[in-house]
Write a protein that binds this DNA or RNA. Sequence first.
DNA 1: ACCTGAACACCGTTCAAGT
DNA 2: ACCTGAACACCGTTCAAGT
Lengths: 247, 247
Amino acid sequence: MAERALPPVVARMWGRETASRHGPRPSLDVAGIVAAAIAIADRDGLEGVKMSSVAAEVGVATMSLYRYVGSKDELLVAMADAAAPEPPALDGRPWRAYLATWTRANRDFLLDRPWLLALTSRTPPAGPRALRWLDRALAALAGTGLGHGERINIATSLTSYAASQATLVHGMTSAAEAAAGDGSIAGLADYGDILGQVLDPAEYPELTAAVRAGGFGAAEEWTDDADFNFGLDLLLDGVEALIARRT
Amino acid sequence: MAERALPPVVARMWGRETASRHGPRPSLDVAGIVAAAIAIADRDGLEGVKMSSVAAEVGVATMSLYRYVGSKDELLVAMADAAAPEPPALDGRPWRAYLATWTRANRDFLLDRPWLLALTSRTPPAGPRALRWLDRALAALAGTGLGHGERINIATSLTSYAASQATLVHGMTSAAEAAAGDGSIAGLADYGDILGQVLDPAEYPELTAAVRAGGFGAAEEWTDDADFNFGLDLLLDGVEALIARRT
DNA sequence: ACCTGAACACCGTTCAAGT
DNA sequence: ACCTGAACACCGTTCAAGT
């Protein structure tokens, strides 16, 4: 099978630039630009990341950035990988204990940098950090007798669970902040309140019952670990059942 | 507890406009605008949805739209709800059978309209369609002895599973189409190929092994139902274990 | 080979007028 | 009370020139 040329984004993420030989040395590198963009996103959110603001942050004219990144989209992809921390160390823990902390750590860094949530669906994981996370999850499942494909599937399910939980929690908490301004949805108390106003019990019988029973609970309950653990255990119980079936 | 005024987006989605009394009748309504925007997104993707293109589609000046929707963002939120089909009918099926088709149907309409994937993380479900989906899932679990909060949690987990699967499949297939143009990632064969080029086996031992063993398989395997069912069963097994614990 | 100023293209939104 | 043309603001990207 012929080697396929690396897509430019991927090459840049892995530092596989073909270094140029002649002329002035470049005054910047991709890593510095990406770091500057991340700093801006942390401070001002993703809307603050403009080619002009990133250029200002590194002290260069806007157009100079195009020497290093092909487009803003490419920059965003690189940011998404670089902004993730290293995965937790395995340290010989049993698969279930490790995957639980792995998934929790995954959710936590998404909540630290909620702007990452808007970037996750852009591209399959191909950066060094994302692949290190994947590699560790596969390692944790190495002794279970599951196949490679199954292990990849499990890791993918856990990643997307972490992302969906982070999206949920972030949606609730950030909406609460914004609520002072315009009248968007302001956390779970309001959410239940709004549903109560809008729902026709005949058309939404179960949901109405849930709202009346306080099924949406207080906002703290959701940001709490309880719900996170609930769904996580659902998944890990499923994995455990699968392993048991295999042995 | 005082009634809280409905956020404008929500009010508009539920048709709770305070109708105006005097002056000329409006020539448009929100539903028509939303339908036009959906038609454009189906045809040209989400980038094709501009205030100007939507206005052209309904045959009106761009600025007239602002009589009906507060902003483009608001329009997108309304689109996200209106673009979903009705949930499958329960028909007295047992919870597991129903939730399986429910989750599959959820994934399917996301794949029919992949532009929905970029809109899902915007706001908690508050539109008539999204809530109808939630209501039916709660109904399916009504006889299980689970609490309202637990049932909501399960429905949320399944929704996000459907979304993550759709994101994955869509990412793979659409990348394959775009691959002719620039060199982005072009389906799973390429994906494994690229990983193989980039991975240092010392740093990514398990991933390297998985790639060599063909753990990423052929692209068809992923779009196939096999992987979808795998993760779904993981979740439903977890639910089943929970129900068993309760009784 | 790198950097940059000016300019272009695009698009969401405001405003002041029209009817 | 509704519709609309002109205009503004913003931002990603191209290009041709500078060193």
